[in-house]
């Protein structure tokens, strides 16, 4: 009898250090499943960022590179340019991508670097203990926004919609936003990741999947409350779907015109 569901080969069979209810585990699994399906386990490299996902190298069963905070897209650039036939996954949190690494993100995207960014947006700094992130919602509490994020009075600015920000850049070919708060969104998110990875391997340009993810610990919620909060508070502000898709309309036909390996 064929197994319909099992542990992905590209994930090491260990228990993760992530908190109960955290979205990182689901996202790791989705990435691993897609890599397995594409047969790329031995040809993948993940850059694990400073943040909770810094331990990603314990979980993904392939090579990894751990750069400085926010420099993940620059390091991914160096790796992908040297290994253009590998799948390079630039895994980033909201602080890494949209605060300290904003310049690296925008310019890697603008150069059309051919790696895929997996942007985990949980609207909070997780590893350092619940500080305000660039994506923290207005009114949301954080240790550094003790009265809630207040753009006007306390000069905390506004939450950044990264997909929409990057969509104006010509180097970006595929920008999608998913969520992992319920099975329907999880399945859609997996599809986005697959589309992005396939586009990367065809060498189309910069691809990114932003994933709204729950952080019950720092949100000070139960796991159930946290997935509900994604639905009630995050998704209305960060709309789901393919924000930008200028990929070749029919990859098969495009591949026929431009054989793999010829650039």
């Amino acid at each position: 009898m064929e197994a319909a569901y099992s542990h992905p080969k590209s994930l090491v069979p260990v228990q993760s250090k992530y908190c109960p209810g955290c979205g990182h585990g689901i996202i790791h699994r989705l990435i691993a499943e897609v890599i397995d399906e594409m047969g790329l386990q031995a040809r993948s490299i993940i850059t694990n960022p400073v943040g909770c996902a810094i331990w990603a190298d314990l979980y993904f069963d392939f090579d990894s590179v751990q750069p400085a905070h926010g420099r993940t897209p620059a390091a991914s650039t160096g790796i992908k340019r040297m290994l253009p036939d590998h799948l390079v996954v630039c895994y980033q949190g909201d602080g890494d991508l949209a605060a300290i690494g904003t310049a690296e993100t925008i310019h890697a995207a603008n150069r059309g670097e051919k790696f895929t960014t997996i942007f985990v947006n949980n609207a909070i700094y997780g590893m350092t203990g619940g500080q305000m992130a660039p994506t923290t919602l207005v009114g949301q509490y954080a240790t550094t926004a003790p009265y809630g994020r207040d753009p006007d009075v306390a000069g905390m600015g506004y939450p950044i919609k990264v997909c929409e920000l990057l969509a104006t850049l010509q180097g970006t070919k595929y920008l999608a936003r998913g969520a992992v708060n319920n099975p329907v969104n999880v399945k859609k998110t997996k599809k986005y990741i697959r589309t992005a990875f396939e586009a990367q391997m065809r060498g189309e340009g910069f691809t990114m999947v932003e994933i709204l993810s729950q952080c019950p610990t720092n949100w000070k919620m139960s796991p159930v409350q946290s997935v509900e909060w994604v639905e009630s508070s995050m998704i209305p502000f960060y709309p789901l779907g393919e924000i930008k898709n200028t990929l070749q309309p029919d990859p098969a036909a495009a591949a026929a015109v431009k054989p793999a390996g010829v650039r």
Binding site: A74, T77, G78, I79, R81, M82, L83, H107
Partner: peptide
């Protein structure tokens, strides 16, 4: 590979990535 990076910070981290693959960077 030649890249005019967006900053010296980015440039050295591109070196970090390229050096990780064993390339002379």
């Amino acid at each position: 590979t030649f890249i005019q990076a967006e900053s010296e910070v980015a440039a050295i981290n591109m070196v970090y990535g390229a050096a990780s693959t064993g390339a002379r960077a």
